[in-house]
Measured scan of single mutants.
Amino acid sequence: YWITCCPTCDVDINTWVPFYSTELNKPAMIYCSHGDGHWVHAQCMDLAERTLIHLSAGSNKYYCNEHVEIARALHTP
């Protein structure tokens, strides 16, 4: 949970406070499906809480801010 998930990541173990109602003692993470995949903080991706809950409940693929354009290009005929 205490990783630098992207170039603009500002989640710090020493200063972090809950942002989403689902967070208690660690930041919400979401899995990016690009390549071998990697974890990113939901807050760093500017996800709305409703979107985070929807993604967490389903089996939808998610692409982080850095990889979403690549994913779109691969799926565009």
Rank of each mutant, 00 (worst) to 15 (best):
Tyr1Leu: 09
Tyr1Met: 10
Tyr1Ala: 06
Tyr1Gln: 04
Trp2Met: 05
Trp2Gly: 03
Trp2Ile: 04
Trp2Glu: 05
Trp2Asp: 05
Ile3Asn: 10
Ile3Phe: 14
Thr4Ala: 08
Thr4Asp: 11
Thr4Gly: 10
Cys5Ala: 02
Cys6Phe: 04
Thr8Ser: 15
Thr8Val: 06
Cys9Arg: 01
Asp10Met: 04
Asp10Ala: 14
Val11Cys: 13
Val11Asp: 01
Val11Ser: 03
Asp12Glu: 14
Asp12Trp: 04
Asp12Pro: 03
Ile13Ser: 05
Ile13Met: 04
Asn14Lys: 12
Asn14Ala: 02
Trp16Cys: 02
Trp16Ile: 08
Val17Trp: 08
Pro18Arg: 03
Phe19Val: 05
Tyr20Val: 01
Tyr20Phe: 07
Tyr20Pro: 03
Ser21Phe: 07
Ser21Arg: 08
Thr22Ala: 07
Thr22Asp: 08
Thr22Val: 10
Thr22Leu: 06
Glu23Phe: 00
Glu23Asp: 15
Leu24Trp: 04
Leu24Thr: 09
Leu24Cys: 13
Leu24Ala: 07
Asn25Gly: 12
Pro27Cys: 00
Met29Ala: 02
Met29Ser: 15
Met29Cys: 02
Met29Ile: 05
Tyr31Phe: 10
Tyr31Leu: 12
Tyr31Trp: 06
Tyr31Arg: 11
Cys32Ser: 01
Ser33Asp: 13
Ser33Cys: 10
Ser33Tyr: 12
His34Tyr: 09
Gly35Cys: 01
Asp36Tyr: 04
Asp36Ser: 07
Gly37Arg: 00
Trp39Pro: 04
Trp39Thr: 06
Val40Trp: 00
Val40Glu: 01
His41Arg: 01
His41Cys: 04
Ala42Cys: 08
Gln43Arg: 15
Met45Arg: 01
Met45Val: 05
Met45Tyr: 04
Asp46Phe: 05
Leu47Gln: 06
Leu47Pro: 01
Leu47His: 05
Glu49His: 10
Glu49Lys: 04
Arg50Lys: 13
Arg50Phe: 11
Thr51Gln: 07
Thr51Tyr: 10
Thr51Met: 08
Leu52Arg: 03
Leu52Cys: 07
Leu52Val: 11
Ile53Arg: 12
Ile53Gly: 12
His54Tyr: 06
His54Ala: 12
His54Pro: 12
His54Cys: 12
Leu55Ser: 12
Ser56Val: 12
Ala57Glu: 11
Ala57Trp: 05
Ala57Lys: 08
Ser59Cys: 12
Ser59Val: 09
Ser59Leu: 09
Asn60Tyr: 09
Asn60Ala: 12
Asn60Val: 11
Asn60Gly: 11
Lys61Glu: 12
Lys61Ile: 15
Tyr62Ala: 04
Tyr62Lys: 02
Tyr63Ala: 10
Tyr63Gly: 03
Cys64Leu: 00
Cys64Phe: 00
Cys64Val: 02
Asn65Leu: 12
Asn65Tyr: 04
Asn65Gly: 13
Glu66Thr: 10
Glu66Trp: 06
His67Asn: 04
His67Lys: 03
His67Phe: 02
Val68Asp: 11
Val68Gly: 12
Val68Cys: 11
Val68Pro: 08
Val68Ser: 09
Glu69Trp: 14
Glu69Leu: 06
Glu69Tyr: 04
Ile70Ser: 07
Ile70Ala: 13
Ile70Arg: 13
Ile70Phe: 12
Ala71Glu: 14
Arg72Asn: 14
Arg72Met: 09
Ala73Arg: 12
Leu74Gln: 10
His75Thr: 14
His75Phe: 09
His75Val: 09
Thr76Asp: 05
Thr76Trp: 04
Thr76Phe: 03
Thr76Cys: 03
